[in-house]
Structures are given as structure tokens and as C-alpha cells.
Design a binder for these strands. Structure first.
Lengths: 269, 269
DNA sequence: CCAAAAGTGTTGATATTACACCCATGT
DNA sequence: ACATGGGTGTAATATCAACACTTTTGG
């Protein structure tokens, strides 16, 4: 690309990119190791940071909304369908330059449906220069992407009390024990099952399917699903602010604005 | 500006703007009406929405960070110094076009020091096409700016438990009664003074100056100031996440990343 | 019967709320 | 003295963490 010298490039209009942190939870570890979060990275083919791993992203297309562009970054790395998408933050320090061109990145984070991550690890993984990594064992990342990932994980942890988030991480129906395992994996801390159970049931976001899971030589556990009204209920801080699905399109994709409020304020959506 | 037809403009690279919601609290209503929040608006001189009121903003300059650009929007509307600045959200729907050119707006919200708003209302107000409005009595706004303002107010309310935010809204030293009045004004709900006092004192974010305020024919009230370590303390949800001042520059300007965490994650800051 | 996880009960610590009450002051 | 907000006390209630205990299954 034929740009002038550095000072000319510095004064060029800033480019807008969209970058995504795509998270998926490993299907339950049968071996009883705690299941982990994974995310896909792309190996850079150009300078700067050529050869290093980076978050998937791309330039913002003129006729696309930010959400649509974020969705495009998902399509470029996986065929699976994200079920949750939320804007994370916009980074715009001029030092974050690419080839000297000032770069603004609108960052999103997304959850992939509790789908079989194993299949994904086999297919798209080696097909392109895309590979999935467990979040607790990432390589050194290009740009400030390490910061972005850490922030996305922080956001996820603080969204775990929103039914719309948790429900993406587990397949229905599920036992309360399984649900706790998932929450524990994300939060990275142990939870007393007795108290966890009470809190969940008191939240009125779950409904009993009437079925039971008989597994191993122990007492069968009741199976639950998320109640349809779970979005409006919530069970903690976000109770009053949880938004519906303003996007509408793309099946079950949930697009929640930050802190869940914005879309509720949107006149049109 | 000589652009082509609509479809050509649609495919032009998106423009990046920075838009700010600047909030200031009316100096204590002596007449005993509850003090209100105000914000400055700019009257548009061009299409679209020519003549309507809009949030101050401008194009992102290539060699400026987003924060610096947000700060520039402040300078364009007021001489006062903001003491708090936080990124709000980035809007990027292509329908939000200006002259058909896709427009991405990175929005910030800022607090102006508890300074005498009255002076401000007189000077900058009529000098340019800038005027201050109380947030509960805004005119119809251009673009989606009404949504942005409502969201900024929501954010402010949910930041009131962060000492760094509250401290911008009141002049030190202050009585607990005055502090309660401020919080009540922002939250829009009444607070039991006895409980409010206990919670504040238990938070260890205040320190007694030893002075008393003798006013009117009643018992003098103790005067407090915010403790220096108030930033690290916090007294509620954000306790663990409150960030220091990563910006450093510009005196007392506080730049907190959303949910207060990001800057704590920043490697350099 | 036993191991193991499901599920229930209980208890003490801590917060939150509502409200009664006293205190210190200028007029 | 008294009205007024400053400041304290307190009892009812809610929340929550910890942990003992019972239940139900497969082996």
C-alpha cells in the first residue's frame, strides 16, 4: 500500500477496525478435570507483529453496523454460531498504530454456544491460520490484545449473574451440579452447592423439567432448563436492566448492550 | 464538501467522531429546590438536523487519543476543567449517517467540577451556539443523542457508589447532609440520612476535618473531606475494581475505564 | 452396606431498613 | 422555649456463608 512517509501517515484519517474476543466453554471434561474456556486466535501474516497470534478482526465496512462487522470476524474464524455478543470497549490510542496509521479498534466479546468445541478444534483449526487456545495458556499476543482478552474475561465473570449469559454456556437440560461446575469454571472459585442451589432457585430463572438425570451410582438429579422469562428476571445486579434481543435476526443471537441497558433505551430496536 | 452520489458516499470509509455528554451539578439550590444536573448542547449549523440541539463532538484527529479528542470537545464548549472522563459506548449503525457518510461515534461522559455553574450559564452560554440545559428538561435532540444522554445518566447513577465520581460533584469540605442531597439529586430518590451517614462512615472514604459548619439556627454539622485513599477503597460493588488515575496529566482529571477495570489491566499505565 | 452426589435444615454473622429519640444551636 | 436539621440507638428483617445432616441411587 503506497503511503508516504511516517509523518504523512500519522496525519492520515484513523482506520476503524472491529476486533472480537470469541469465547467458548469446553464441553464438560469427562475426565473430571475442570472444563476451561477457549478462544480462537489468528496468526498474523503481515507486519507489524508478523507471525504472532492476534484476536480476529477486520476493517469496518462502510455499509455494515458495528455488530455486523463483529459478526463477520466470527464467520472468519468459525462456522459455529455465536449466541451472545456485547460491545466491550473502543481502543484508540494513536500509539496503537498499524504501519504508522492511527488505529481505532471497536472491540466485542462473544459467546459461542456450548457446542462441541472438540469438532471445532479439529476443523477450522488447521484449515486456516486459526487456532484455539485455552484462555489460561495463551501465547504472547500482538498489539495490546492481551489486555483486551483479560478485560473480556473480567466482563464475562461479571456477567455470570445474567441468565442470558449463563444459558449460553450450558446445554439444556442440566442438573444444578452441572450448572455450578460451569459457573465455577468461569469464576475460578468454588461454590457451595447448597447455597448455589438456593440462590438459583430463588431467582425464578430456572424451571424443573420433571426429568431426572441418572448417572453413575448415585442419586439422580433433577433436570432444569432456563425459564422463558429468564431474560426479564435476572437474579442480581442486572435485574432491572436486562435487555431482550434487539437484533432479531440470526436466530438465537443475543445482542446485549453494555450493562444491558442501552438497547432498552433504543427507540427503534 | 464535494462528495459523489449517495451510493458512492455510502461506500466511503466511515468517519470517526467523538461525542461527549458533559454533566455538571447545579450549585446547591439555596432556595431549597433540589439541585439538578445540567449539560451543554450545541446548536447544529449544518444539515442534517440543522438548527437542532446536539451533543458536542467532533472528528477524531489522527494524532490524538480518544481521550484527548473527548477532552477537546469539552474545550469547545466550556472553559471549565472536567474532573472525570469515562468512555460510554461506541455507536456505529450505518443509518447514523451524516450526509450519507457512515458515522461511528465514540461517546464519552464527563463530570465537571462542582464549580459555579451559574457563571458558566452566563458566559460561554450565549457567546457561541452553546447552551446549558437541565437534564430533565431537554429539547428534542439531533441524531440518537437522546438515547446517548439517557445512557450516560444511567451510567452516572450506577457510578455513584464510586468515591471518584461522587467527589467530583461536591465541594470540600461538606456536611453529610449536603452529600446526601447531592446523591439524592442524581439518584432521584430519597435516602434515610441516618443510614446514609452510617454507610458513608463505614466506607472509610471520608475523613473528618474537625471543622463544623454553623449555618442557620440549628446544630452545627461536622465537615468532611474525601480521604486520599478513597479511590482504592470504594464502598460497594466496585470496591475491587476502582482504578487510579492512569492519565496522569491535566491536574486532577480522572480517567476511568468502563467498569473501572481496564486501566488496571493496562500494562503501561 | 457403602460411596457419592443430591437435596434439606440450621445456625450465626452481617447488612439493611424503618423509625424513635436525643442534641446543639440561633432566634 | 422551640423549631430545625445533626447525630445516635435499636429492633425487625433480609441476606449470606458455613456446615451438619438426610436421601437416593448403583454397585
Amino acid at each position: 500500500m503506497g503511503y508516504g512517509n511516517v509523518s504523512e501517515r500519522r496525519s492520515a484519517p484513523p482506520q476503524i477496525g472491529v476486533t472480537s474476543v470469541i469465547l467458548a466453554l469446553e464441553s464438560e471434561a469427562h475426565g473430571h478435570a475442570r472444563c476451561r474456556l477457549w478462544l480462537p486466535l489468528v496468526q498474523r501474516t503481515r507486519e507489524p507483529f508478523k507471525g504472532m497470534w492476534a484476536l480476529p478482526g477486520g476493517q469496518l465496512q462502510a455499509n455494515r453496523s458495528l455488530e455486523e462487522s463483529a459478526f463477520a470476524t466470527l464467520a472468519s474464524t468459525t462456522d459455529l454460531h455465536p449466541t451472545y455478543l456485547e460491545q466491550l470497549y473502543t481502543f484508540g490510542d494513536p500509539m496503537r498504530s498499524s504501519n504508522g496509521i492511527p488505529m481505532v479498534s471497536v472491540c466485542y466479546w462473544a459467546l459461542l454456544d456450548h457446542t462441541d468445541l472438540g469438532a471445532e478444534l479439529g476443523t477450522a483449526a488447521n484449515a486456516h491460520n486459526v487456532r484455539w487456545f485455552p484462555v489460561d495458556d495463551l501465547p504472547e499476543l500482538a498489539f495490546d490484545h492481551t489486555t483486551i482478552v483479560e478485560y473480556a474475561l473480567w466482563r464475562l465473570r461479571h456477567r455470570m449473574d445474567a441468565p442470558n449469559v449463563v444459558r449460553q454456556l450450558i446445554a439444556e437440560p442440566f442438573t444444578l451440579g452441572q450448572l455450578r461446575d460451569v459457573v465455577e469454571a468461569v469464576l475460578g472459585e468454588e461454590l457451595d452447592l447448597a447455597n448455589f442451589r438456593r440462590k438459583m432457585l430463588a431467582s425464578h430463572t430456572l424451571e424443573d423439567t420433571g426429568e431426572v438425570a441418572r448417572e453413575g451410582r448415585r442419586r439422580p438429579a433433577a433436570l432444569y432448563r432456563f425459564a422463558d422469562h429468564a431474560e426479564e428476571e435476572g437474579f442480581a445486579f442486572f435485574a432491572e436492566h436486562v435487555a431482550g434481543n434487539p437484533h432479531g435476526a440470526r436466530g438465537t443471537l443475543q445482542v446485549d448492550s453494555p450493562d444491558d441497558v442501552l438497547s432498552a433505551l433504543m427507540p427503534h430496536a
